[in-house]
Design a binder for these strands. Structure first.
Lengths: 190, 190
DNA sequence: TCGCATCTATCTATCGGTAGGTAGATTGCA
DNA sequence: TGCAATCTACCTACCGATAGATAGATGCGA
């Protein structure tokens, strides 16, 4: 069981993700990563030539993993509440365990000053996650009667509420409040 | 009409606020402020000894101004929609004009890595703004029947939705979507 | 022995912050 | 009223630390 390349690269990604979710993209350095992983900062550059590279790859991996965990939105007999509940649960776990924000929520907050490649990945997270919810909602009793436009707006709106609630819950030191939050679809948005 | 002290100090606060709202607390430097205002960085330290000082004062001024603009929530005959609309409008203006986030939303996103004094001010923003909405809601038909606890949760929940929506609207480059968003109170949260 | 992974060593740029000085306005007192 | 003391609002010059990034040597397993 010797340490392989993949181990180091993954450790770097893991730590970078944790640091961004806690402190933001501008709140960590290559030296933080290096000392945390147990290598020199030049070794971090070996895997990720620039900070933008690292940031973009962290975001892409995060999004991919997030969608895999969410699963297929088209499975039959899923209610709107269940769909939203899945999203909520995924966020709640990270927030409760380590006080970690959604990675792409943090990136969005700093977005104007970030490298383009990183912003693109953050954008993509909201596109894809919004689309996941939209596809799921379409199969529900509520969604079958809604326009494409309404489904889109509803989905982003639910995402918005969850992102904002994480922000507030964390700065207020009240993760329990986020846990109790149950966004509902129908009637919540005009 | 000579330049007075207040001019420089206010210019510093103005620019610091704009930079934080765009790039985050870790996304600006004393030199950015200095060159933007037209003084040397040491002169910025003259007014604000440390970056934490500057950040905390920017946040406090932002909160105070925000609440003044919101006005008295206890004025008679204000509906829940009107109250939420006021909040929404205040955020929409800044987002539409310069793509600026809520200052304290940005700070909340970075909060784990910020100086205590800055985090305290950000926290205070959500306390005070949440309280403003709660006090207003209590006077409405909906609020008069609600428990104190429900009023509190509802208020924070509305704030959360607006904060999250700003994040998403900006990173997606769609301020218009935020403008169209109309959070409603009743039934939105379980 | 090839070459991947990691190191040492270092670079340039910038960070927040400090030391010490100064022109000019203001104040207090003889 | 005159003038010395003090204050305001900056400045130049610099500090140690740290940022992201690079070149080239080394170790070590296949």
């Amino acid at each position: 069981m010797t340490a392989t390349t993949a181990d180091t690269e993954e450790k770097i990604l893991d730590l970078a993700e944790a640091l961004i979710r806690t402190n933001g993209y501008n709140g960590f350095s290559f030296r933080d990563i290096a000392s945390g992983v147990g290598v020199k900062s030049s070794s971090v550059h070996y895997y990720f030539p620039t900070k933008a590279d690292l940031g973009a790859k962290v975001a892409r991996r995060y999004t991919d993993r997030f969608l895999v965990t969410l699963g297929d939105p088209d499975t039959p007999a899923v209610s709107a509440d269940e769909l939203v509940g899945k999203l909520h649960a995924e966020f709640a776990t990270a927030l409760g365990k380590d006080g970690q924000m959604c990675l792409c929520g943090v990136l969005a907050a700093e977005s104007a000053g970030l490298p383009d490649a990183v912003v693109e990945e953050a954008k993509s997270f909201f596109d894809k996650t919004g689309d996941w919810l939209k596809r799921g909602l379409k199969k529900t009793a509520w969604g079958s009667a809604a326009t494409e436009e309404d489904l889109h707006k509803q989905s982003l709106s639910v995402l918005a509420q969850l992102e904002g609630a994480m922000l507030i819950a964390r700065v207020q030191g009240k993760p329990a409040w986020f846990n109790d939050l149950k966004p509902k679809i129908s009637g919540s948005i005009a």
